[in-house]
Computed example of a mutant assay.
Amino acid sequence: MKTKDLAYIALFAAIVAVLGLLPPVPVPGIPVPITAQTLGVMLAGSVLGARRGGLALLAFLAVVAVGLPVLSGGRGGLGVFVGPSAGYLYSWPIAAFVIGLLTQLFWRRYNLAWALVANLIGGLLVIYAIGIPFTSLYADIPLWTSFTGAFAFIPGDVVKAVAASLVAVAVHKAYPVIDLPTRRATAG
């Protein structure tokens, strides 16, 4: 891995940490708050691509695991990985990877619409598919309650997906960070 890759990974892990400075918004009915940090997940995947985006979130979670209070509300440490929001945390590297993979697949025709598709699939569908069952398990609430409680996240997450898509398209036009392999001409 190149030094440039490590710098990008560290930068986006730091961006997710900075977004944790914004206070969490409690959600009635479930013990998982609304945070700005999922915006960082979407940005990491859509700007860095699958591999580096996923690694950025793994690096961030490693920082959380060693106890630094970089999660929204000043949380950190191993305890957060067995609490009600654990599934959402587990989903972040996967979501960034999926967003990055979709971004790379759409690269030749990448625009706001494709960016939004990637961010909605990875940033909402993947995160909710992993987070909701874990919340049900760790909070000892019915799966249906966890599912319906997650509806409170949707408006804000859609806004974050739009914002991440706008930023990603602008970055891809001005300074594309994702290096896609080029096809070599074969002598025939």
Rank of each mutant, 00 (worst) to 15 (best):
L180S: 09
M42P: 05
D140C: 04
A95L: 07
G76E: 12
W144S: 11
Y138L: 12
F60A: 01
W107V: 08
G76A: 05
G123R: 07
A62S: 02
L137E: 09
S46I: 10
V25A: 00
I30Q: 03
I127K: 12
A187N: 13
G83D: 15
T103Y: 02
I132M: 08
P181E: 12
Q104S: 15
A56I: 04
F60W: 06
N119W: 05
G29T: 05
V32S: 11
S136R: 12
V98E: 06
V169K: 10
A152F: 02
S146E: 08
A86L: 04
F134E: 05
T145F: 00
P31D: 07
A152G: 04
V41D: 14
G131E: 13
F97M: 06
V66S: 12
P28W: 06
G87T: 05
P31T: 04
K160D: 01
G20W: 10
D5L: 02
A129C: 09
P28L: 10
G122H: 12
V159Q: 01
I121H: 12
Q37Y: 06
F12I: 04
W114K: 11
G188N: 13
P69W: 00
V177S: 00
G87Y: 15
L89R: 00
R183P: 03
P33H: 03
L43T: 05
L137D: 11
T135N: 14
P84S: 11
L102C: 15
D5G: 13
L116C: 03
P155D: 07
L180I: 05
A168N: 08
A65N: 07
F106T: 13
F97H: 08
G122I: 03
G29E: 05
I99R: 00
L125Y: 07
P24D: 05
L58G: 00
L21F: 14
V126H: 09
G123H: 08
P176V: 06
L11Y: 13
V16S: 14
P31V: 02
A170N: 09
Y8Q: 14
P155I: 01
I154N: 03
L101K: 09
A14K: 03
L143V: 14
L39C: 08
Y138D: 13
P142Y: 09
G100W: 05
A65K: 03
I99E: 01
L143W: 13
I130W: 00
G49I: 09
N111V: 13
V32K: 13
V158E: 12
T186I: 08
V66G: 15
L143D: 10
V66C: 15
L105K: 12
L101N: 04
A139D: 09
M1W: 10
